[in-house]
């Protein structure tokens, strides 16, 4: 129970310290910021090893070896070697070895990126645009998509017809950005209310 009390006081101090930054940079914010970076970096390392490296490499190797599934066990040597290759960067003469794991991860990004762009972006966006022009809203969507796409036309100067269409496109883009902006305001304000509730309810029981 006392550890919870200490925890609540600590959490409240850190909350006030972070908020103090809104006024100006000050020693309290600096301290909270450095503590935050330190703790969260340490947390990330433990998280990566507890949830990724240990179960996926060490435990998986043991389980497969136990089940006499030698292929699945020994293939894990590849990611282990790639991981160690990353660490060899620290030795100046062996820095080049880290190009291999980096290339492997970039290969994953490029392969998945190519497919995901079609499956996750292109198909649904085109599908949603194909609506018959039987009402004003469908017509606005059609004009919006076509003009926005024209704005992203790079190999022609935005003059004449292309220029006019692209200008309509940027109007759509700005209205869309404004709408997203306005839509987020309430969500952010409610987060702030949440923090004040913590301060004035959990820490100082002023609100019942």
């Amino acid at each position: 129970m006392s550890s919870d009390l200490i925890g609540t006081w600590l959490a409240a101090t850190l909350t006030l310290a972070i908020f103090s930054f809104l006024y100006r940079d000050n020693p309290l914010y600096r301290a909270a910021e450095h503590v935050y970076v330190g703790i969260s970096a340490g947390f990330a390392v433990i998280y990566a090893w507890a949830f990724d490296v240990y179960p996926m490499l060490v435990e998986s190797f043991k389980v497969h070896l136990g089940a006499k599934n030698y292929f699945e066990a020994y293939i894990l040597i590849i990611p282990a070697l790639l991981g160690v290759a990353m660490l060899l960067r620290s030795i100046p003469k062996l820095t080049w070895i880290s190009r291999w794991p980096i290339s492997f991860t970039i290969g994953i990004g490029a392969g998945l990126g190519l497919i995901a762009a079609i499956q996750g972006y292109l198909l649904p966006q085109i599908f949603d645009t194909l609506r018959p022009l039987i009402n004003i809203n469908n017509a606005i969507i059609y004009i919006g998509v076509i003009t926005t796409l024209t704005y992203f036309y790079f190999s022609r100067e935005h003059k004449g017809l292309t220029g006019t269409v692209a200008r309509i496109g940027i109007i759509f883009i700005m209205v869309a950005f404004g709408a997203s902006f306005g839509y987020t305001v309430m969500a952010r304000v409610s987060l702030l209310i949440g923090r004040f509730y913590f301060l004035f309810h959990d820490w100082l029981p002023l609100i019942r």
């Binding site: 190519l114 762009a117 969507i141 076509i146 496109g169 759509f172 209205v175 869309a176």
Partner: peptide, 21 residues
């Protein structure tokens, strides 16, 4: 309008992403 511009940007991003890949 938000959905329309979002789709236009999305299609462009998809093509840009494929070209980058």
């Amino acid at each position: 309008p938000q959905a329309a511009a979002g789709r236009g940007i999305g299609i462009g991003l998809a093509l840009g992403g494929i070209a980058m890949s």
